[in-house]
Computed example of a mutant assay.
Amino acid sequence: MEQRIIIEMGMGNDLHGMDYQKAAARAIEDAIRHSTLPIFDSIKLSHNDMRVQVTVAVQEPDKIDPEALTSGLPRGRAHVSVVKGGLNIPNPETGDTAVIATAAVEAFLPSQAGKWVQA
């Protein structure tokens, strides 16, 4: 059985290029910059024991390459899912559309129940 040990949310955008991949990568980077997991060094856990589930939301999910986003994650066994969400904000004066992506990054470990003793 796995237990979720962390969930972080992030937001990223591409203001002028309407590049969903860039916005999604920035959303993931924003989420993982908010966390650190010292537990791995503290109790000698391997990062390979961690499963990382990323969910990215953009208005046009088919324009995302999930494998490319997976390769940018620094630790664990990662999987990226893409769903419809985020925002497209058109600028009628310039014709540009700002793309806003959101991301949730979840980390799971095998159950640690009974492995820790309070001293």
Score class of each variant (00 low, 15 high):
residue 43 I to M: 02
residue 96 D to N: 12
residue 31 A to S: 06
residue 48 N to M: 04
residue 27 A to Q: 01
residue 19 D to L: 06
residue 57 A to Q: 14
residue 17 G to H: 12
residue 27 A to C: 06
residue 89 I to V: 13
residue 112 Q to K: 10
residue 44 K to D: 07
residue 44 K to N: 13
residue 94 T to H: 05
residue 23 A to P: 08
residue 42 S to Q: 06
residue 100 I to Q: 04
residue 76 G to Y: 02
residue 65 D to C: 12
residue 42 S to H: 05
residue 22 K to G: 12
residue 57 A to H: 08
residue 24 A to W: 00
residue 65 D to V: 14
residue 100 I to E: 10
residue 70 T to E: 08
residue 10 G to F: 07
residue 111 S to H: 12
residue 14 D to E: 14
residue 112 Q to I: 11
residue 59 Q to Y: 08
residue 47 H to C: 02
residue 72 G to Y: 05
residue 84 K to W: 00
residue 50 M to H: 00
residue 31 A to K: 06
residue 10 G to Q: 03
residue 50 M to R: 00
residue 67 E to P: 07
residue 78 A to S: 01
residue 84 K to I: 09
residue 87 L to R: 07
residue 69 L to Y: 07
residue 85 G to Y: 03
residue 58 V to Y: 08
residue 106 E to I: 01
residue 58 V to W: 03
residue 72 G to W: 00
residue 38 P to D: 02
residue 76 G to F: 04
residue 76 G to T: 02
residue 79 H to A: 10
residue 34 H to N: 04
residue 23 A to D: 10
residue 91 N to H: 09
residue 88 N to S: 09
residue 12 G to F: 11
residue 114 G to A: 10
residue 113 A to I: 13
residue 65 D to A: 14
residue 90 P to G: 15
residue 85 G to N: 09
residue 85 G to M: 05
residue 43 I to P: 05
residue 63 K to F: 10
residue 61 P to Y: 15
residue 56 V to E: 06
residue 80 V to D: 03
residue 107 A to M: 12
residue 37 L to V: 00
residue 98 A to L: 14
residue 8 E to V: 05
residue 45 L to D: 05
residue 102 T to S: 09
residue 32 I to C: 00
residue 62 D to R: 15
residue 32 I to Y: 10
residue 37 L to K: 00
residue 61 P to G: 14
residue 73 L to R: 00
residue 55 T to P: 00
residue 52 V to M: 01
residue 91 N to S: 15
residue 48 N to K: 04
residue 54 V to W: 02
residue 13 N to P: 01
residue 63 K to P: 08
residue 75 R to M: 03
residue 99 V to R: 10
residue 54 V to K: 03
residue 64 I to D: 11
residue 114 G to V: 13
residue 41 D to T: 02
residue 34 H to L: 08
residue 49 D to N: 05
residue 57 A to E: 06
residue 16 H to D: 10
residue 81 S to P: 03
residue 46 S to G: 13
residue 71 S to Q: 11
residue 39 I to Q: 01
residue 74 P to M: 07
residue 55 T to Y: 04
residue 28 I to W: 02
residue 21 Q to M: 13
residue 77 R to S: 05
residue 103 A to I: 04
residue 33 R to K: 11
residue 89 I to D: 09
residue 77 R to K: 04
residue 27 A to R: 07
residue 57 A to P: 02
residue 83 V to R: 02
residue 79 H to I: 04
residue 100 I to V: 15
residue 116 W to G: 14
residue 69 L to E: 13
residue 76 G to E: 03
residue 13 N to H: 11
residue 68 A to R: 12
residue 43 I to T: 03
residue 85 G to P: 02
residue 88 N to Y: 15
residue 90 P to W: 13
residue 45 L to M: 09
residue 9 M to F: 01
residue 35 S to R: 01
residue 110 P to C: 14
residue 79 H to P: 02
residue 53 Q to I: 11
residue 53 Q to D: 09
residue 114 G to H: 07
residue 11 M to E: 14
residue 104 A to Y: 04
residue 93 E to S: 12
residue 43 I to Q: 00
residue 38 P to Y: 01
residue 15 L to G: 06
residue 61 P to I: 09
residue 34 H to V: 05
residue 56 V to N: 07
residue 98 A to F: 13
residue 88 N to K: 15
residue 68 A to Y: 07
residue 86 G to V: 04
residue 94 T to A: 14
residue 22 K to L: 11
residue 10 G to V: 10
residue 76 G to R: 04
residue 57 A to F: 03
residue 19 D to R: 10
residue 94 T to G: 14
residue 63 K to L: 15
